[in-house]
Design a protein around this nucleic acid. Structure first.
Lengths: 266, 266
DNA sequence: CAGTGGTCTAGACCACGCT
DNA sequence: GCGTGGTCTAGACCACTGT
């Protein structure tokens, strides 16, 4: 070959793109780059560090994957606002019992209790459909495969920001034709348990199976997390007198701002 | 400049690197590329798709972020094996009560119950030390900052494979000088709760705070997971008559093979 | 229209693992 | 010694955003 290409600089401890990412991360952590601030553009970083654009983009990619920044085409990179950690306690399922002489409480659901938000800040997307039970749902709900179910897919938002995705299944034989099956009635004060109570179904036990995994690209987008932030998933089963009456498969929670809190009495 | 560079191909629906990732993901999901199988090398993918190496690497990067594959320097990329899921139920804390005439049960702890393994397959590393309570421990244990604690760091192994890391703190004023503070007595049949029972401390409530995060490099190595697999962490507090008597900070579980199972009675 | 991040090319050198 | 993924360079064209 002709002349050798300019050799890479002396082998640094860390790759250049990690050094760049570390420096930017330090500025974000220290508050030098506060939430919402613009990062230097890719061209600026190239000049400041004397590296090629690909190297800069690798550094930026790390921070985006960590969920520290957002990158938007044509608009630049910005520091992502951080959310406080939400504690999801078991008491979110407790039914409200009002004391005599108390003011009627503001409407609430397990979601508004988790978030510590008022009814007004609570919005949701909802998609209802009817589906037959597959193997997994049949086992969770203890019905035959093929049993008709009401599927309700929700995206819950707090102040407009998506905080939770869930897909819930109810027995169509139980809720079909009732107000519960009408999307217009959602959100429903008191949530699932209150809904079922109106049908004479008294939920007395909730089972939660908790796992973690990386988000799908779609989930990461919806929840506004980086694709290197894991999610918590819950499979929730509600039981009335030992009989499963509702199954929520893959309740998806952003792992960087949720803590699940369980108390076990022995 | 001289002639223009060869233009990019007609604007595809999806970027090329996503198409490549999608195709590989499809092969993994369908089993065409089973667990442990080698992916095509980067050079092979360049030839098969007629793209530059940077494009191939972007595709590979997506799959690695999703936890579907591992990439190892000098050894190639491989489909990550999927582990069977272990269910950690609340009953792992239940104290054994033997019926009359029953055979004495094999020794057990919450860990052996989780794993469904016998006593013989159970091994552990243990490191004991005495430390003063920091802010967090002081709050968890409801003692003054600086209170002396017994710190016990464990790595639990099933058939020699590390499956759980935990760091547990006990009040030195409660366990100092007792058999509980002697590393030689670990593993202790019946585990923590049985240990405390010998001191007249009856644990009647366990609180678990569950979070998820990416593992530290050290944790990833110890648990034998890649650094793209999230971990579940549990902060566990054991209480006797409402008083905290043990705190386990950062029980670390490999997220690709653990499910936590909680039942809530309303 | 200038500036931005998204996508892509066509090369290069490196250190390590395997055979 | 050859092949591998990890790192890096120096360009290019694109579509959209903001002024």
């Amino acid at each position: 070959m002709g002349g050798t290409v300019i050799a890479m600089p002396p082998p640094a401890e860390q790759p250049r793109y990690r050094q760049i990412a570390d420096e930017l991360r330090r500025r974000i952590d220290s508050g030098t780059l506060p939430a919402g601030a613009s990062l230097p553009t890719e061209v600026e970083l190239m000049e400041q560090w004397g590296v090629a654009r690909g190297t800069v983009r690798e550094a930026i990619g790390l921070l985006r994957a960590e969920g520290l920044i957002t990158t938007a085409r044509h608009r630049g990179s910005h520091v992502r606002p951080r959310w406080p950690v939400r504690r999801l306690g078991m008491d979110r399922y407790r039914v409200e019992t009002h004391q005599r002489d108390e003011q009627p409480a503001e409407p609430a659901t397990s979601f508004t209790k988790d978030q510590g938000i008022g009814w007004a800040a609570y919005t949701m997307d909802k998609t209802y459909s009817e589906v037959p039970a597959d193997d997994r749902l049949a086992e969770l709900l203890q019905v035959p495969v093929g049993e008709q179910l009401l599927r309700r897919h929700f995206v819950f938002r707090s102040h407009g920001v998506p905080q939770q995705i869930s897909t819930s299944y109810l027995l169509l034989s139980m809720v079909g034709g009732t107000p519960v099956a009408d999307p217009a009635n959602e959100p429903w004060p008191g949530g699932n348990i209150a809904q079922l109570a109106t049908l004479g179904v008294a939920v007395d036990q909730v089972r939660e199976q908790v796992r973690t995994r990386m988000p799908t690209p779609d989930e990461a987008r919806t929840l506004g997390i980086g694709d290197a932030i894991p999610v918590l998933t819950i499979t929730r089963t509600m039981l009335a007198a030992g009989r499963p009456v509702e199954a929520a498969v893959d309740i998806v929670l952003p792992g960087d701002r949720v803590e699940l809190d369980y108390t076990i009495d022995l």
